Amino acid sequence: MWLRAGSLLFALPAVILLSLYGIEMSALTDCTQSGGHYDFINGVCSDSEQPQISYYQRHTILVNLMMLVSIAGTFAMVWGMMLRGMSRPKD
């Protein structure tokens, strides 16, 4: 149980962060292809040039929480492996 739960906790935050980042990059690409400048703070396309702010600076708490969940998943996987013990596959 710990191994499966840990695997989910380890992988799911990365999938969530990559999905959210990809959606934002899609909006950025659409905006720049239409000749505009993407406003990262408000999430809209504008005519005036906007400063580029990293995803981490805008979503610090979300990124840190997702990484904390991933670390917890790592420990859960290790705990699950320790509980299962060393075993050889049966032939």
Results as ranks from 00 to 15, higher is better:
32 T>H: 10
70 S>N: 02
91 D>K: 12
74 T>R: 03
15 V>Y: 07
86 M>L: 15
41 I>W: 07
86 M>D: 15
26 S>P: 07
51 P>I: 13
80 G>P: 12
90 K>V: 12
4 R>I: 15
64 N>K: 03
46 S>T: 15
60 T>D: 14
75 F>C: 11
55 Y>E: 02
13 P>D: 12
52 Q>A: 14
14 A>R: 07
58 R>L: 06
46 S>N: 15
3 L>P: 06
33 Q>K: 13
34 S>D: 14
7 S>F: 11
89 P>M: 14
63 V>F: 08
13 P>M: 11
5 A>G: 09
70 S>V: 00
5 A>Y: 10
31 C>M: 01
10 F>A: 02
66 M>R: 04
54 S>N: 09
24 E>I: 00
88 R>L: 11
55 Y>I: 02
27 A>M: 13
57 Q>H: 11
88 R>D: 09
82 M>T: 09
80 G>D: 02
40 F>Q: 11
38 Y>V: 01
50 Q>M: 15
58 R>M: 05
9 L>A: 08
58 R>V: 02
90 K>Q: 08
19 S>F: 06
70 S>F: 04
22 G>H: 13
77 M>L: 10
19 S>N: 06
80 G>M: 03
17 L>K: 07
41 I>C: 01
44 V>W: 00
76 A>G: 04
54 S>I: 07
15 V>H: 04
46 S>I: 11
78 V>N: 09
26 S>F: 14
66 M>Y: 03
56 Y>I: 14
2 W>V: 00
46 S>Y: 10
3 L>E: 02
84 R>Y: 09
38 Y>F: 13
18 L>G: 09
85 G>W: 10
54 S>W: 06
37 H>I: 00
57 Q>E: 15
78 V>K: 13
68 L>G: 15
40 F>V: 05
28 L>Y: 13
79 W>N: 00
9 L>E: 05
16 I>N: 05
47 D>C: 11
48 S>D: 04
1 M>S: 08
13 P>S: 10
31 C>T: 02
72 A>Y: 03
5 A>I: 15
78 V>R: 12
81 M>H: 09
6 G>F: 01
17 L>C: 10
24 E>Y: 01
59 H>D: 14
78 V>S: 12
29 T>C: 08
37 H>R: 07
52 Q>G: 13
14 A>T: 14
33 Q>A: 13
82 M>G: 05
77 M>V: 11
3 L>G: 00
22 G>V: 12
55 Y>Q: 04
7 S>H: 03
8 L>Y: 07
29 T>V: 08
6 G>N: 03
13 P>G: 07
57 Q>I: 09
66 M>I: 01
4 R>M: 15
66 M>F: 04
30 D>E: 08
30 D>H: 02
67 M>Y: 12
80 G>A: 00
59 H>Q: 15
79 W>C: 01
19 S>C: 06
89 P>E: 12
59 H>L: 11
68 L>H: 06
47 D>N: 14
50 Q>S: 08
65 L>M: 12
10 F>R: 03
56 Y>H: 12
80 G>S: 00
74 T>I: 08
40 F>E: 04
23 I>G: 11
45 C>Q: 01
72 A>T: 07
79 W>A: 00
43 G>E: 05
18 L>N: 10
10 F>Y: 01
74 T>L: 08
64 N>T: 06
63 V>S: 05
77 M>D: 04
16 I>L: 04
6 G>V: 00
73 G>L: 07
62 L>E: 07
12 L>E: 04
67 M>F: 10
48 S>M: 03
50 Q>V: 05
57 Q>C: 09
44 V>I: 01
53 I>C: 05
